Computed example of a mutant assay.
Amino acid sequence: MSLKQWEDWIERNKVNLEHEADFEERFVREILTKIPEISPKNVTSQYLFKDQSNVNRYIDFFISDPSRGIKIAIELDGKSKIKNMDDWVNLFVRQNALVSNVDGLLLRFANVYWLHNDRLVIAEIRFSISKQEHDFKSQQLKEQARDENKDQEKKQLEVIEALSTKMTALEQELKNLTEQKEKNTTQEIQKQTENTRKGIETLTLKMDSIANVLNELSKKGERAVDHSSEEELKTARIIIEEIASKINAIEGGLNSFNHENSINSSEEKAQETKSRETMNSLLVKINGLEKELQDLNQKQFEQRPLNLEDKEKTSEALKIIVSKISHLEND
């Protein structure tokens, strides 16, 4: 900072710097002008403040730069200020008021001290300025970090809330899917049971029809069946065996399905029991039909030759049973 600016400042503050020994103006010239961290605009002479009794008080110099966090009050002391006990009391009241009401650092220098130790006083003021700047910058960084942490915490909270919302939605979706699966499984069991029941009813009707045909054929066979019908009888027996095998496969599939999906309701259990009973009844019927065919095939027929009409009737009856059993296999 140029001396010209300091000279201008001294001129503007001439009244405030008046002193019988000219200590205050000399302090500016010999101390403050040699501190490169400050300029005249940072210094106020006879800085006004109020004490606890709301009385106006003044400090010799106040160095201030809010942008750098610098606030230093400087008081020059000489023995001329202390003439009696009241001066001592007033001195401490004034100092306490300064400390309590002026936000900053208070430095007090005896005139006899700074006049003979100017370099030490300059170094002390510069150190105080540097420390305040450092503390101010550190505080700024802490506040900035705190603000950044708040922003980061806010973002993290938003992410957590978003995840919580998503988890709630997924949980509900999983619950809905589970309920739908249970509903579909129950419907599938009911559908499978119903299809099995219908299939068993159809097989029962067809088997009853076969039994009637075989019964009719058996009556005719007691009187007239020749060896040319053996192949048809064997075919009928093989087809019946295949039907029995297919019913066993249906039963196995039903057992597996029920095991995987667990029949729970009493209605489903009753239906499953009924299906099994009907299935067993079918197997008994098939075994009976098979035995009947075997008996027909092994029957001892009369030695007399069959007439043409008997042969035709027997052959026609066998064709009917083979046709019906073949139709059942295709179904």
Rank of each mutant, 00 (worst) to 15 (best):
E20C: 09
N264A: 08
F61R: 08
S266H: 11
E201S: 12
I200F: 07
Q298K: 12
G199K: 14
Q95C: 06
T278W: 04
G104H: 01
A73E: 00
F301T: 12
K274E: 15
N84M: 07
T178S: 01
W114I: 08
G288R: 13
E277R: 11
K191G: 00
R108F: 05
I160F: 07
K81W: 15
T186M: 06
R237P: 01
N54Y: 08
L283Y: 01
E194K: 14
R276M: 08
D77P: 00
R12Q: 14
S128M: 12
V15M: 13
K14E: 11
L293K: 04
A270M: 05
D310P: 01
K154R: 09
I35K: 01
A249M: 10
K50T: 08
V322Y: 03
L318R: 01
S266L: 13
R94T: 07
I238Y: 03
R237T: 10
D331M: 12
L157C: 02
L289P: 07
S2F: 09
S228Y: 00
A123D: 11
E201H: 14
I247T: 06
E232G: 03
T33Q: 12
Q294S: 11
E222R: 10
Q152G: 04
A21C: 04
V213G: 00
D208L: 11
E30S: 13
R223A: 04
E179I: 07
K313R: 09
F23S: 06
K50P: 00
T204Q: 11
H327P: 05
K14S: 13
V102Y: 01
D65L: 10
L120Q: 14
I321P: 03
I31M: 01
K83S: 07
S315Y: 15
